[in-house]
Design a protein around this nucleic acid. Sequence first.
DNA 1: GGTATTTGATAGGCATATCCTATCGAAAGG
DNA 2: CCTTTCGATAGGATATGCCTATCAAATACC
Lengths: 296, 296
Amino acid sequence: MIDKLEMFIALAREEHFGRAAAAQGVTQPTLSAAIKQLEDQLGVMLVWRGSRYQGLTPEGQRALDWARRIVGDARSLRQEMRVAREGLSGDLRLAVIPTALTVVSDLTAGFGAAHPNVRFSVQSKTSAEILSMLENLEIDAGLTYLDNEPLGRVTTVPLYAERYVLVAKSGHPLLNGPVKWSDLADVQLCLLTPDMQNRRIINQHLSEAGVEVAPQIESTSVVVLVSHVVRSNWATILPVRAAEIFLKGDDIGSVPLIEPDASHVVGLVAPHREPFTPVLAALLERARSLSELKGY
Amino acid sequence: MIDKLEMFIALAREEHFGRAAAAQGVTQPTLSAAIKQLEDQLGVMLVWRGSRYQGLTPEGQRALDWARRIVGDARSLRQEMRVAREGLSGDLRLAVIPTALTVVSDLTAGFGAAHPNVRFSVQSKTSAEILSMLENLEIDAGLTYLDNEPLGRVTTVPLYAERYVLVAKSGHPLLNGPVKWSDLADVQLCLLTPDMQNRRIINQHLSEAGVEVAPQIESTSVVVLVSHVVRSNWATILPVRAAEIFLKGDDIGSVPLIEPDASHVVGLVAPHREPFTPVLAALLERARSLSELKGY
DNA sequence: GGTATTTGATAGGCATATCCTATCGAAAGG
DNA sequence: CCTTTCGATAGGATATGCCTATCAAATACC
C-alpha cells in the first residue's frame, strides 16, 4: 500500500507514467499496475485516463494529500528507528534560494561536526520550487523567504533579514556612499531571472522608486552575476549575505541601497509533522540557535 | 507495511500474540512473522521477547505512535474515497460514558435521517477506556467528560453541562425540595462503580460535603441503579440527562442536588487528524450545532 | 516434583502478489 | 503517411503472505 502511494505521489509530480516509474526505480508497467490497483482498492478513479496522463481527478487530488501524509510519516518512522539504531545519521536534503546559499554553511558548520553521520545534499532552487518539493517529499527542508508568499502547512524558523547592496567594480562612481534605488535608472544591471523571488522583490523596489530595468544579463546563479561585475562593466544588486563572500579582494565593492532600506526575512522551512524526525528536529534547533530574529 | 503496522498496534493493545492475531483475523504465526519482519525492516527491536509478551521497547513505543498515525491516516484515506464514491456512508463507532448514553440519540437523530447510509455502533465504556480506544483506533469518537482529566491530542466539542439530581421512589421524604449533598449522609445510595469518572465526581462532592458512602449496590449500568430505585428502597444520584428518561411515570421522582450546584462538561471527543474524514466532520458539525455550550 | 497448559517461534507448503521483459494500440507530431 | 511517444496488456520468474503442524520454554497445577 505505502509503495503504491509512493508511486502515486511520483506520478502526480512527474505527470508522466514512464518518468514516474523511472523515479521510483521500477518499470512503467509496474507503476501502471500499481496505480490501477490503488484505484481498485479505493474504489475511485484517481487519474484521468486518455492515451496519456491527463491530470488527477478531484478524488485523486484529495488522495494525494493523504498519500503525502502517510508516506511522509512512514519515512519519519523509518528514519527515527534508524536514528535509534545508529544515532543521528542519514541524508538531509535541502533546497535553497540562490541568495541564501552562503548561509547553508552557517547551518552545517556546527551541525556537521556534532553529527558526522548526517550527510547534506544542497540544491539551488526558486522559492516556488522549494515549496513544491517540500510538498512532494523531495526535500526535507528549505531555505527561502518567509514574509512574502503564502507558505502552506509548514514550520518556519526565521534566520535573518535580507538587506540589499549594490555591487560594482572597484572605482565605480556610485560606490562612494549609500545609493538610493532611484539612482539606479541609468545603471547597467545584471540580475537574477524573474522566476526568482529575489528578482521580483528587487523589481518591486525599483518600480516603487520609479526605475524601469531590462537587464541584458539574467541568470539563476549569483556566481554568474558577480563574474559579470568583475569581468565587465555591469553592476548587480545582491543581499549582503550573498555578496559578502565575493568582496574579499579589491576587484569589486559594495554600498548599501537605501530609500527604502528594504528588508525581507529568510529562514528555514520544513514540513510540519509532529513529532519531527530527530535529524530534522536537530536542524531546526540549530537554526533557532543561529537565528538573528529570535523574537520574529 | 500498513498491514504489519496494524498488527503491531493490535499486539501493543492486546499485549498477547495470540489474541492480537485473532483480533486481526490471522493466525498467531502470521502475526509473529509480521512483527519480526517489521523489526527487520526498521532495524530495531520493538518488543521485549521472552517466552511471552513482555511489553514494548522504547523504540517500540515511539514506533507505536507513528504506526497509529499512519494506520489512522490510511483509514481516513479509504473512508474519504468511499464517501466520494457513494456519499456519506460507513460505520461510526462511538464509545460513551453510561451517564451520557441518552444524549447519543440527540446526536444520531438528525444525522441518521440526513445520512441513511451511516451506521452507528455505540458502546458504554468508562472515560479512561474511551481515551484508550481512541488512541488505539478502536472507535472513531467518544462522548465523555471534557473538564476533569487530561485528554491528549484530541478535538473536543462541548455538548452540555451535567447537573445532578437525587432520584428516589415517589413519596421519599427527601423529594420535597432541593437536597444538599450534605443531607445524604444517612441515605441508602446505589451508585456507579468507582472506575467510572461520574462516581469519582460524586464521591468528591460527597466527601467535600463531609459525607462518607459505601453503597451496597454498585454497577456500571444506570439501568441497574434505576431499577433498584424502583423496586427497592435505594436512592441514587444521576445527571439530569441520564435520569430524565426514567422519570416519565409516577414511580420515581427527582430533586436537584445543591450546595454545591455541581456542573461538569460533557462533550464529543475525536482524534485530531487534519483534515477530518467526511463522516467524522459531519458528526462534529452536528455536535457543534447541538451544543448548549457554544462559547465554552 | 512431575505433569499439563500456555505462549511464542519454527518448518514446510500452497496461493497470491509483485515485478520484470516483450509487445501492442492509440494518439500526437512532423 | 510515417514515426514517435505513451500507457495498457500478456506471460513468466520470483517473492511474499498466510496457513497447518509442531516444537521448546516457561508457567501453573496437583
